[in-house]
Design a protein around this nucleic acid. Sequence first.
DNA 1: CGGCCGATCCACT
DNA 2: GTGGATCGGCCGA
Length: 202
Amino acid sequence: MTKLKKDFYVREDVVQIAKDLLGKYLFTKIDGKLTAGIITETEAYAGITDKASHAYNNRRTNRTEIMFAEGGLTYVYLCYGIHHLFNVVTNIKDVPHAVLIRAVKPVEGIDVILKRRNIKMEEDISLLLKNTKNKIAGGPGTVSQALGIKTKHSGFDLTGDKIWIEDKGIKISKKDIITTPRIGVGYAGEDAKLLYRFVINL
DNA sequence: CGGCCGATCCACT
DNA sequence: GTGGATCGGCCGA
């Protein structure tokens, strides 16, 4: 196995990191249960100059403080009072960049994942997994639910043994990456137009 | 301390 | 296509 190391996350270009994360395997071992999915959708959040970022204008609060740490940590927060959204902190200390993981394709611990998502075992699971619009972990809230990630898992070390990402050699060619503006950031003015969302179809 | 609102999802029409 | 659910974080008083 080739777990991504600190140097992967500490790089400067958060947009490049968001693209590089496509096709990587996101693993969690939470409550003693191993689950994983292939990352199929990401969004880049470019720190203090990015109006869509929680760290815009150098805003430091108890919640956002984690993003100011050196890259390689998790940043999990609650959205709409319900959804736990999972992010990867990148860049050097005091540069609060992050990548939101918006979708994964489950590959490990499917039974656990279905249970967590409260989805009945269907006759043909592959139907549910088809394309990135899968109902199992096809949105940022459902990714966290499927993998057992909660806000209490914010600030975890991605080189540790609870939440980590592996490179299993899947090569994503440039032409297979769909690039679009980010979702749900209409309040960010001009920055809402930035092409910071990246999707692949597996 | 109170009020507002969000990097969403799902059930329903 | 739409609206309700639901609550922690943030900000202003």
